[in-house]
Design a protein around this nucleic acid. Structure first.
Length: 649
RNA sequence: GCCGAAGUAGCUCAGUGGUAGAGCAAUUCUCUCGUAAAGAAUAGGUCGUCGGUUCAAAUCCGAUCUUCGGCUCCA
């Protein structure tokens, strides 16, 4: 076995021969010394491992460095252990739960017993963390028997680890030790704690053991660590940037929405500026939908509970709906979704195959009971408006209709300069979560994949993310600072046509079942607005800005000219105002800049005389003097084409 | 809903048991001004709400509401 050769395939497809038992580190060294220095772990046939473990079979491998997800995952996993090591020394009574890496860092759940650990203690723990990291300990892996593992933690009185070990299979249990700290862990870990150069413990929160709200509450300490101090600094800057863009802050400053205690939490009130923007967005989509053969409908905000029992939504989502109300001895509900209403509209007429596809659209407001702790600005609310539509079509039309919907959704996000990732959300094995029969599901899942392939989309598949009546195509957009948001969805539904007994008469003069496509490009107007605010940091493209142009006269003498210009703008529906206050021009400019007005027109005696305007663009400053007649048509053009702001930064 | 933190003027915040403060915004007056803040004056608060301790509470205690950070959830 010692002399046996194995073949390892690198990510670029190249193959290399090694003797069996070669370690990940040796492989990295054989490729490049720099790679060996940067290596954190190795992926062998999809399995992430420690670098010092021997490889004994032919495999596809990847050396994981900080630049890969897997490398960061390993790095942060080891950082969680360092956090525990630091805490073990500072709080010897602490009992450890779990400490995994997460998308942006890591956490450890800890039972501190009677000790009160607060935010103020974090710097002290950070200091100890770095001290431990600088000891440059190696992570040592050790196989232990289930019995040994159990008795180790029983002796320590750590019921959490005992609980974890009970669920593990004997022979598959490993401990990792670095410095003075040993932890139950499947690994892998980075070679040496010295690679961790910087850490920030970001927050402290309560978390239940195993997510069970009946169970014991542990203290969760979140942190993020980096191989370079500079990276930590950049990370902290990004957080600052995100804070500056927070839609709750900008939404208030820009007069977009408010939340009022007396009205109720989670029930946003759209202020005039926000309403202008929302109506503009709605007009944009309404226009595109009209061109694509959608018909608009309006449905009421409450409905008889029988409607939702028929749809099957009621038992599935009982907990997230407002309680029913009694009306004339019948039960009514605040509408949690629009679909059943649209299905009844479909049933209102006898439908022929000639009527299909029937595309019913509605900006429909729905109400859902979100837990109080979940509410947040415009992004998680209890009443919101979906840009909903349901397409009723024959099975033959299905794929083409899905394509049209995807095309529309892509157009929408392109308009805002948001890159889109596509995810096919399938069901998982947990049958209880889903309605309808397996045959329909398999068919729908296959169909959306076919469409995605035919359109040559890049996509990922996510089992378990489907809705209860069908698989989805989800659009995950990335905003200007790289954060991901799940927005629009497209869902294929074979379940509701059955439940509502929807039919159409085919060319054979027989009754058939239509298929339904549910779709909402924005998702909800509230949530989309929150994302738009943060994406543009409040510096909206001209077509969306609530106030598009502000005219700033140098002195009162130019007010009549300013009003003439204003009228010209209003004639072409440009949102414009004149700042006629007796402020100096610098003050007026400053106010317009802080209000993020895209275009400022400064008019003094020179401009009045020449029929010109001196133009300032938000965040760009003075861009020169233009003939008003030419400038106004440029503005008109910019609005019409929905141009994005220039050099976004 | 649960854990933790916070709630003082329209906004951002100071005020640790002894007469409620600042800057910005607002209003009025003066100034009529050339590319990010003119000057002066005035007005504005049951210190989230309710209760308790105290001679005395923004301040200490309890309850409650709301917001924020997490957990859980997300059609």
């Amino acid at each position: 076995m010692a002399d046996q050769q194995i073949t390892l395939t690198l990510p670029d497809g190249s193959e290399r021969e090694y003797s069996s038992g070669v370690t990940g580190l040796e492989v990295a060294q054989s490729i490049a010394a720099g790679l060996a220095r940067a290596a954190l772990s190795i992926t062998v046939n999809g399995d992430i491992r420690d670098l010092d473990r021997p490889i004994t079979e032919d495999a596809e491998i990847a050396i994981n460095t900080w630049d890969s997800e897997e490398g960061k995952y390993t790095f942060w996993h080891s950082s969680a252990h360092l956090l525990a090591e630091a805490i073990q020394e500072l709080y010897p009574e602490a009992k450890f739960g779990i400490g995994p890496p997460i998308e942006n860092g890591f956490y450890y759940d800890i039972d501190f017993g009677d000790e009160q650990v607060t935010q103020e203690d974090l710097p002290k723990i950070e200091k100890k963390f770095i001290e431990k990291a600088r000891q440059k300990s190696e992570f040592e892996r050790r196989n232990v028997s289930k019995e040994e593992a159990l008795s180790h933690y029983e002796d320590k009185g750590n019921e959490y680890k005992v609980d974890l070990i009970k669920d593990l299979e004997d022979g598959n249990i490993t401990f990792y030790t670095q410095g003075d700290f040993t932890d139950l862990c499947r690994g892998p870990h980075i070679p040496n704690t010295g690679d961790v150069k910087a850490v920030k413990l970001t927050s402290l929160a309560g978390a239940y053991w195993r997510g069970d709200s009946e169970g014991k509450q542990l203290t969760r300490i979140y942190g993020i660590s980096f191989p370079k101090q500079k990276m930590l600094n950049e990370h902290l800057e990004r957080i600052e940037e995100a804070k500056k863009r927070d839609h709750r802050k900008l939404g208030k400053e820009l007069g977009i929405y408010m939340i009022d205690k007396m009205v109720g939490s989670g029930l946003p009130l759209w202020l005039p500026n926000g309403t202008l923007m929302r109506r503009t967005l709605e007009a944009f989509l309404r226009d595109e939908q009209k061109n694509r053969g959608y018909q608009e409908v309006i449905t009421p905000h409450i409905a008889n509970i029988e409607l939702y029992k028929t749809s099957g939504h009621y038992p599935y989502y009982k907990d997230s709906q407002f309680n029913p109300m009694e009306v004339d001895e019948e039960e009514y509900m605040l509408k949690p979704m629009n679909c059943p209403h649209h299905h009844r509209i479909y049933s209102n007429d006898l439908r022929s195959y000639r009527d299909l596809p029937l595309r019913l659209a509605e900006f429909g407001t729905v109400y859902r009971y979100e837990q109080s702790g979940e509410l947040s600005g415009l992004s998680r609310v209890r009443g919101f408006t979906q840009d909903d539509a349901h397409i009723y079509c024959t099975h033959d039309q299905l794929k083409q209709e899905i394509k049209n919907v995807i095309e529309l959704t892509q157009l929408v996000f392109n308009t805002f300069g948001m890159p889109v990732d596509i995810r096919l959300s399938y069901r998982d094995e947990n049958e209880k979560k889903y309605g309808g029969n397996t045959e329909y599901w398999d068919r729908a899942q296959q169909e959306i994949r076919e469409v995605a392939d035919e359109m040559e989309l890049d996509y990922t598949v996510a089992p378990g993310e489907a809705s209860f009546y069908g698989p989805k195509i989800d659009f995950i957009i990335r905003d200007a600072i790289g954060r991901k948001w799940q927005l629009g969805t497209v869902q294929v539904d074979y379940v509701m046509p059955e439940r509502f007994d929807l039919t159409y008469v085919g060319s054979d003069n027989e009754k058939h079942r239509p298929v339904i496509i549910h779709r909402a490009p924005f998702g909800s107007m509230e949530r989309f607005m929150s994302i738009l605010i943060e994406h543009f940091a409040g510096d909206f493209p001209l077509w969306l800005a609530p106030e598009q142009v502000r005219i700033l006269p140098i002195s009162d003498d130019q007010i009549p000219y300013a009003n003439e210009l204003k009228e010209s703008f209003e004639n072409i529906d440009v949102r414009v105002s004149v700042d006629g206050r007796s402020e100096q021009i610098g003050g007026k400019i400053r106010d317009a800049e802080t209000s993020k007005i895209p275009i400022m027109l400064i008019v003094g005696s020179n401009e009045v005389e020449d029929g010109t305007v001196s133009v300032r663009r938000h965040k760009h400053g003075d861009i020169g003097t233009f003939k008003f007649s030419e400038f106004i048509s440029d503005v008109h053009e910019e609005i019409k084409t929905k141009a994005l702001p220039k050099n976004q930064d």
